[in-house]
Amino acid sequence: MNDSTRTSTAMLAGALAAAIAGAGGFASPAHAANEKCYGISLAGQNDCAAGPGTTCAGTSTVDYQGNAWKLVPEGTCQLYGTSTEEAKYELPGDREGSLEPLARDVPA
């Protein structure tokens, strides 16, 4: 057994003893505490509406055919800084979006 291993073993044993002695004293993690406070009825921000799910329903939300190449991000990222230089992108080829909703046929 070399010196570094011995040191390591002693250190581990000491650290473990300290950790066990203090095991009851750790606060619950900040985000877990928050999520408990929110309760599970708040949709979208917690475990209740977590991630994508399937339904057998259609949607009346109309997808926009337009694309992001003409858009500038405009959410909370503006609080943290968006490079306006970066926002002026070159459009690759003739890619352009019109942001028109999909046409739907009038019922026969």
Partner: peptide, 14 residues
């Protein structure tokens, strides 16, 4: 939330 609804939908559609 970071990019806003319009940009998100457009990026996600891509």
């Amino acid at each position: 939330s970071l990019v806003g609804e319009r940009f998100f939908r457009a990026a996600a559609t891509d």
